[in-house]
């Protein structure tokens, strides 16, 4: 008795192949949606903002009159913000990653810390804003200063850098670690002289990507009350400041049409900064990716 009808199988094969090809095409379309959106977004923004991207725009402070308004204060403020966020988040996150990968004993506290970090990664940025508003702005009386905002953003991107640094540290092969301790090097000597230098490209890539998220972050800054019109740049981390994404958000809410073009011009500046940061990250990753 023949259980499989061969004719039936070959007859249905054609239909199955067609279905496969149709779906393949649809899947390809899904993949291309991202590309289409990216191109549309960039073209739309550049068309709107190109003519407003002048030297004056880069060197003027914000203004209620669109023809005078610029991003100078916002760019300087964002640089200040990163100058606080970068060192704080690097020390906190890389320290945490080193502890978890190299020193943490296997116990419930360690498990709890790990679960806690992955939960922090899912907390909305606006909630971090409320944390910063209550603790840094009010209780520690830092006001809406660069320091308060920098600390808030540092805590927000901490989980991101911890996870990427952990991966970088874990990718250093254990044989190299054994070679070092096998010569009588202490734990910290092994970590500081062998593991960290080997993991540093991965760690730096993670840091740059996290900072590029922080530099475009708006919601926590709104909650902290970062001002949108200011005619000075900060002199210290305790001064108040403007930030580029806040400036963009302020302009997009303006009813006058001209501000929409300023918004687009501001976005172009922000995207160029992000593009540069991402290029550096990708360059470092590719340059050092085939080490082992």
């Amino acid at each position: 008795m023949q259980l499989v009808d061969k004719d039936q199988v070959s007859k249905s094969l054609g239909g199955r192949l067609i279905r496969n090809n149709i779906m393949k095409f649809l899947f390809l379309l899904c993949t291309l949606v991202g590309l289409v959106v990216l191109v549309t977004l960039i073209v739309d923004t550049v068309l709107d903002g190109w003519n407003y991207l002048t030297w004056d725009f880069l060197t003027s402070f914000s203004s209620s009159r669109p023809e005078n308004a610029g991003v100078y204060g916002a760019i300087i403020g964002s640089i200040w913000l990163m100058a606080v966020t970068a060192p704080v988040s690097i020390i906190l996150s890389v320290g945490t990653a080193m502890y978890l990968e190299e020193y943490a004993p296997e116990n419930r506290l360690t498990d709890f810390i790990k679960i806690n970090i992955s939960n922090l990664a899912g907390v909305p940025s606006v909630v971090f804003g409320l944390l910063g508003l209550t603790i840094f702005v009010r209780q520690l009386a830092l006001g809406n200063s660069v320091l308060a905002a920098g600390l808030t953003l540092s805590l927000m991107i901490l989980p991101v850098i911890v996870v990427s640094s952990q991966e970088a540290i874990r990718s250093v092969p254990s044989t190299v670690r054994e070679a070092s301790v096998g010569m009588g090097a202490t734990k910290w000597q092994t970590v500081s002289r062998i593991i960290l230098p080997a993991a540093i490209p991965g760690i730096i890539t993670g840091i740059i990507l996290a900072l590029s998220r922080a530099i475009g972050e708006t919601a926590p800054l709104v909650v902290l009350g970062v001002p949108v019109s200011l005619l000075v740049t900060p002199n210290s981390a305790l001064d108040t400041f403007q930030a580029l994404p806040m400036q963009i958000y302020n302009w997009v809410k303006m009813p006058q049409e001209e501000f929409q073009y300023l918004t687009a011009a501001g976005i172009i500046i922000l995207l160029i900064i992000l593009f540069l940061m991402n290029s550096v990250a990708i360059y470092i990753r590719n340059k050092f990716s085939k080490r082992y």
Partner: peptide
């Protein structure tokens, strides 16, 4: 080629997406 594009898309600030929503 595609994966870096997705990464770029993931890195675009939400204020930019918001502007894209309202203006486009």
């Amino acid at each position: 080629t595609i994966k870096p594009i997705l990464e770029i898309l993931a890195g675009i600030p939400t204020v930019v997406y918001g502007t894209f929503a309202i203006t486009f």
